[in-house]
Each structure stands twice: as structure tokens, then as C-alpha cells.
Design a protein around this nucleic acid. Structure first.
Length: 478
RNA sequence: CGGGGUGUAGCGCAGUCGGCUAGCGCGCUGCGUUUGGGACGCAGAGGUCGGCGGUUCAAGUCCGCCCACCCCGACCA
């Protein structure tokens, strides 16, 4: 069974990641370079992410809508920084219906421009505000180097676009949605993240301020797992989004945008996966419990299957899968479902029927230690408790891993060895675009975020030696 | 776009000082035995050797051009 074996995580991280995505049947390569086919197992995971996030969006007053895939080129050109930021990675449609188009259309890389255009029509009065709309969809960015889930030419995401009467309200929305992402990452995906503000160089093209949740992957590299942008009045002015306020004066709106993509699936894989394969957080897993029946002959089979259907009925509150494939041995199935990250496995064999028990194995605890025998009585509670234990254990393990790899270097020498040996540097930093660029050039590390605004304490910048109130995380990133 | 690498069965590969009918492992199909940690036996199916051109009695193998993909950089959610 050479084919099912994964490269080890430690020896070849990217190969491990790639094989894991392919073999667990989350995704496959598409016949177009850099594009990805999300397979049913992966898409179900994405749907669970969607449902969870969508609920949070609704709870915070947002509604969903759909905007076009194709955007006139001129729309993008209305905001200078925006078009400069995105033009290198645009896919452009030049022909339609067999004829050359008068104006080329771009396949949306993000929808600020088309949504802004619509908002300028829809918004007239302060009574129309705020507008709180989200869109689930796909976008295309012509990236040079791609990687399944992490960076593909086409990806699936949600993008929220809101318009407000005041800067304060828009800023509050930006931070609220950042917090929705943070909460989702930590409490649903068990991915510990550092929320914070992006540096000037790293911010979104056209934004006044960008915020991010940064996650640490199993190789200690950082991943931007979700972003929320305060766009100020940049897009409102470019797209003429204006309203009459209560004193009958014309004002520009303040807008925000925020997004989280299928990249987050990559974050889950790289945060929790081990040498055995995926480990999916119970709250998002497409299959939470797999039941593997074990029998030697028809007599045993009918006894066992009878118990299996009783147990599965008992567990109807969970997402369960009965693996009744006849042609495969139990041992094979154990490994198969472990590779695909199913949090709990229940084995039911003749002995269990006799003892009114089941064998239950935790994916997050490798080997025999994770396996125990429990009574069929009260199984629903047992399973619920174990899933919760797994969920919190994953978060705990990932948080410890992250914290163990964050260091506070005193000087640039220490900084360089931390970055090259694998870790994040948490340092005092006095803003300097030139110094930031030099550090990136020399170490490949970038500022991941400013975790706090307006710190009270003061320290000495590790690079320039100047006094500063800001601390930042530096890391190599995906 | 720079540097490196690979294209031979669904997947992973061997075969490359030209040579006769192109091979191995896994997977796939059928039958039988198996089944509590990646089962075994027997019998099968499956290939324009990435493409085009050249050299030769003879090309998967040598030469030229092209194409695709992967890895490392610059760019990015």
C-alpha cells in the first residue's frame, strides 16, 4: 500500500501538505494551471465553514446578495491604488459572442468596484445607511505560483461590503468583523490566531487600514487567514457614494470590506494535521464519527449490523458515516479515515455486541492511547463529550505550539536566527518602510501585524534603536 | 521572468552506451479464501513511451525544436 503513505511532515512539509490534500480527497488539480477542483469532501468542509460564518454575519445584521463576475475595466481604474495593486493579476475578457469587446471586462479579483458602483445608485439618504451586504462567490487572481487552497488562480470566499455614515461606525464595523473572524478561527476551527493591523506596505490596495488574523502553520510560517479593511472614503469618492445627512448636506460614505476564503481550509490542514494525515476540528468536520463494523461471517455480520444501526440511530445528532464497504479490511478503513481527519472512530465487532460496548478511537491521540472501550448505554453523551474534548485539545495543542515558537529577540542578530530557525519574532518597532523592506530583503520575514493600537508602554525598536510604542510580529509567510 | 527538475498504463516508477513481443509495484475487473491496525491466491483488462521533425536497416533510448507540469526565487488572500 505504498500509495497511501504520506511523506512525513518534518522531512518535507510542502510535499506532506500536497499529498495530504490530494489523498484525503479534499481537492484535485484542475486541467488549467493553478486552478483547483474542490472535491465533495473538501466542499462539505467549506459548506460547514460557510454556514458557521453566515450565521455570524446574519447575527450582526448583514444580508447576502450576488454581484456580477465580470467588471468593466474602467471601474477598476477609478481608484488609483486599487488598480495598481490588482492589475498585474487580472484575467481580462476581450471577446464576447465572437466579437472583440469595445471595453475589456475583467474577471473580478474582488468586488469593491462593482459593488461601489451599485451603492452609489442605492444610497441617497442617511436613512439608507448603513448598507451591510455580504457576497459568497468566487474570484480570480492570476498568481504566478500556486498551491492547493493557499493560493489558486480561482478561489471561493465571502466578501462583505458595507457603507456607513461616519468614520467611527465604519471603523467599528471593520473591527467587529475582524473579531467575528477571530472568534470563528479560535472557537470553531481551533486555529489560534493573532488579530491585528497590517503595516502600510502590507495593507489592501485602496484601504486606509487593513486588519488581519494571522495563524501559525506547522512549519512555523505565518498565514493571513482572514482580512478586514477600513476603506475610509477612498472608494466612496471614486464611485460617488454619497448621502444627504440630517442637515441636508451631501456627504461621502465611509466603507469597509472583509473577506475569508477557501485558504482557511489550508490553515486548518496545516495547523492540525500530523504524519498520519488530516485532523479536522469536530465542529467543522464533514464526518464527525465514522462507524466501522467488524465481522467474520454472515452470522456475525447480521448481529454486528443490527448493533450498528442501533448505535447510528442513537448518534443521529452527529454527522456520522457507516463504512460498510465489503471489500476492505477494518485495518485499511482505520487508516483511511485517519488520513481524512475524522475526529472519532467507532468500531463494532462481535465482542462488542456481546459486551454491549463499542471501541472508540480519538483521532487527536495517536496509536492505542486514543482507543478505549465504552458502553453502548449513554453513547450519545460519551460521543458529545469526546468531540468537545477533541475540539478543545486541538486548540490547546495548536496554541502551545504557536506560543512555543514566538520569541522576543533583543537585537537584529537574534532576530535573524529566530527567523531562519523557524519562528515568529515579537518586537518593538518604530515605523519605517525602508527598514521593513530591508528586513524582508535580508530575512524574507515581513510584518504580519500590529496586534495592538496605541500601546501605553514604550520600548526600543530592535532594528533602529528608536523609542516606540508599537510592537509587531515578524515572520516568514505563505 | 530567472535557476533546477520531470514527462513511459488510473497512480508511483524502472527501462536511456539504439535491437527483437515495453516492464515492475499499487490500483482496477472476475472467482475463491480472508476481515479487531494498511489481507492473500489464481485468472484478466489496461500503453499512439508529452508533441513535431531529423539521423538510422532499426528510436521509449541519439539530435533539434516545441509543449506541459513540478520545485526554488520575484508577486500575492
Amino acid at each position: 500500500m505504498e500509495e497511501k503513505k504520506l511523506p512525513t511532515k518534518e522531512e518535507n512539509y510542502s510535499e506532506w501538505y500536497n499529498q495530504l490534500v490530494l489523498k484525503s480527497e479534499l481537492a484535485d488539480y484542475a486541467p488549467v494551471r493553478g486552478c483547483m477542483v474542490v472535491r465533495p469532501y473538501g466542499w462539505t468542509l467549506w459548506e460547514n465553514i460557510q454556514k458557521t460564518l453566515d450565521n455570524r454575519f446574519k447575527e450582526t445584521g448583514h444580508v447576502n446578495a450576488a454581484f456580477p463576475l465580470l467588471i468593466p475595466m474602467s471601474f477598476l481604474e477609478k481608484e488609483k491604488e486599487h488598480v495598481e495593486g490588482f492589475s498585474p493579476e487580472l484575467a481580462v475578457v476581450t471577446h464576447g459572442g465572437g466579437e472583440k469587446l469595445e471595453e475589456p471586462l475583467v474577471v473580478r479579483p474582488t468586488s469593491e468596484t462593482i459593488i461601489g458602483t451599485m451603492y452609489s445608485k442605492w444610497i441617497q439618504s442617511y436613512r439608507d445607511l448603513p448598507v451591510l451586504i455580504n457576497q459568497w462567490g468566487n474570484v480570480v487572481r492570476w498568481e504566478m505560483r500556486t498551491r492547493l487552497f493557499l493560493r489558486t488562480l480561482e478561489f471561493y470566499w465571502q466578501e462583505g461590503h458595507t457603507a456607513h455614515a461616519t468614520a467611527e461606525e465604519a471603523q467599528a464595523e471593520t473591527l467587529q468583523m475582524l473579531n467575528v473572524y477571530r472568534d470563528f478561527a479560535v472557537n470553531e476551527a481551533a486555529v489560534p490566531v493573532v488579530p491585528g493591523r497590517k503595516s502600510e506596505t502590507e495593507k489592501f490596495a485602496g484601504a486606509l487600514r487593513s486588519y488581519t488574523i494571522e495563524a501559525m502553520m506547522g512549519d512555523t510560517r505565518a498565514l493571513q487567514a482572514g482580512t478586514s479593511h477600513f476603506l475610509g472614503q477612498n472608494f466612496a469618492k471614486a464611485f460617488d457614494i454619497k448621502y444627504l445627512d440630517q442637515s441636508n448636506e451631501l456627504q461621502y460614505c465611509w466603507t469597509t470590506s472583509w473577506g475569508l476564503s477557501t485558504r482557511f481550509i489550508g490553515a486548518i490542514i496545516m495547523t492540525h494535521g500530523d504524519n498520519q494525515g488530516l485532523i479536522l476540528p469536530p465542529r467543522l468536520a464533514p464526518i464527525q464519527v465514522v462507524i466501522v463494523p467488524i465481522y467474520r461471517n454472515d452470522a456475525e455480520k447480521s448481529l454486528v449490523m443490527e448493533a450498528v444501526s442501533r448505535v447510528s440511530a442513537e448518534l443521529s445528532a452527529f454527522k456520522i458515516k457507516i463504512d460498510n464497504r465489503e471489500e476492505l479490511t477494518p485495518g485499511f478503513k482505520f487508516n483511511d479515515w485517519e488520513m481524512r481527519g475524522v475526529p472519532l472512530r467507532i468500531e463494532i465487532g462481535p465482542k462488542d455486541v456481546q459486551n454491549n460496548s463499542v471501541a472508540i478511537a480519538r483521532r487527536d491521540v495517536p496509536g492505542r492511547d486514543g482507543k478505549s472501550f465504552v458502553s453502548q448505554a449513554g453513547l450519545e453523551n460519551t460521543v458529545r463529550n469526546m468531540l468537545e474534548t477533541i475540539q478543545s485539545n486541538l486548540l490547546e495543542t495548536a496554541t502551545k505550539f504557536r506560543d512555543d515558537h514566538i520569541f522576543e529577540p533583543k537585537d537584529y542578530g537574534e532576530f535573524k536566527s529566530i527567523i531562519s530557525e523557524g519562528g515568529w519574532a515579537y518586537v518593538w518597532w518604530s515605523d519605517s518602510i525602508e527598514n521593513e523592506a530591508r528586513i524582508k530583503e535580508e530575512t524574507k520575514a515581513t510584518i504580519r501585524c500590529y496586534p495592538q493600537e496605541d500601546g501605553q508602554e514604550e520600548g526600543t525598536c530592535f532594528y533602529s534603536g528608536q523609542k516606540t510604542k508599537n510592537k509587531v510580529y515578524f515572520a516568514r509567510a505563505y
